[in-house]
Computed example of a mutant assay.
Amino acid sequence: MDKKVVLDLLAPMPKPVEAINKLIAIFRTESAPLEIKGEGSFIGLNQEEGESRVLLVLEGALNIYRIIDNLRFARASYPNIFGMQGSPFRNNLYQFKREKGSLIESLPYSLALELINDHRLFNEVLAFQTYLSDFQAYRTNLLISKSTYQIVCAFLFELEMMPPEERLRTSVFNYIQEHTHLARSGVMKILSDLRQGEYINIENGKLIAILKKFPREY
């Protein structure tokens, strides 16, 4: 096998749940349920009227996709907020899909800014924006200038950190491929080698457990 080094990847800061919940509580005084045309439809941050909006994830989750290539950037579970950065450039980079059973509300971006100012929620906004910035940097660090082996290992670690009920519903290959668009043959070979080496336990395509530390080189 080619020698590919596994790099230690730093995880982003924990989600600032208290700050997010405080922001959501204030935003919900003016938000309304999000109207979605059909189950599985993409949701954007730019409204037809021209003004951008803020999305509140109150139950369930949103999946975030990069518009240019439909790469699944991340899954964002509740509580969460999107659209706070208010940048037309960023708003045109990503779109969202609601998971079945999720509860999403929205409000205009300009109104969200007024509420932040009126209730002096600057510390909460800073904490949340720092978290988003860290997560985006983490994702970029994970994918750029890394070997296929390094990327596969990193996403296996992500799967391991999922709640068990969610992980056991998630196909290992689909999860990695949706987030990376790596070639199927390369991903499957690495997963097969890790299984044969008894580093991972996969049953019916789902990750049961990581059994021991991955080899530093592949």
Rank of each mutant, 00 (worst) to 15 (best):
D2L: 14
N63G: 00
A183L: 14
P215G: 03
F157G: 05
A183G: 12
L115G: 00
G83R: 02
K146Y: 04
P12Q: 07
I67D: 11
A154M: 06
E217C: 05
K146F: 07
I176Q: 13
A19E: 06
F157S: 12
L55E: 10
R53K: 14
Y138S: 04
I176V: 11
T148W: 00
T140F: 13
K189M: 12
L142V: 09
R90Y: 15
T148H: 07
R75P: 00
T148P: 02
F155N: 05
R28M: 06
F155H: 12
E203I: 05
F122Q: 02
Q196F: 10
T130P: 00
L71T: 13
I68K: 15
P16G: 02
A11M: 12
M84R: 09
L142F: 06
N91D: 14
E198L: 08
P16Y: 03
H119T: 00
V152G: 05
Y131G: 04
R169P: 01
L194R: 02
V152M: 08
L168E: 14
L107P: 08
G205S: 03
L111S: 13
E51G: 08
L71G: 00
L107A: 09
N80Q: 12
L113T: 09
R75F: 01
R72H: 10
S52T: 14
S110A: 14
L93T: 11
I20G: 04
D193R: 15
L107T: 09
P163S: 06
N70L: 13
N201F: 04
L113K: 15
A61R: 05
P108L: 12
L58H: 08
N46L: 12
F173H: 09
N70V: 01
V6F: 15
D8Y: 08
E166F: 05
K97L: 07
F157K: 13
D69S: 04
D2E: 13
A76K: 14
G186V: 05
Y65D: 10
K37C: 07
I200V: 13
N91R: 09
P33G: 02
E165C: 00
K15W: 04
S192N: 15
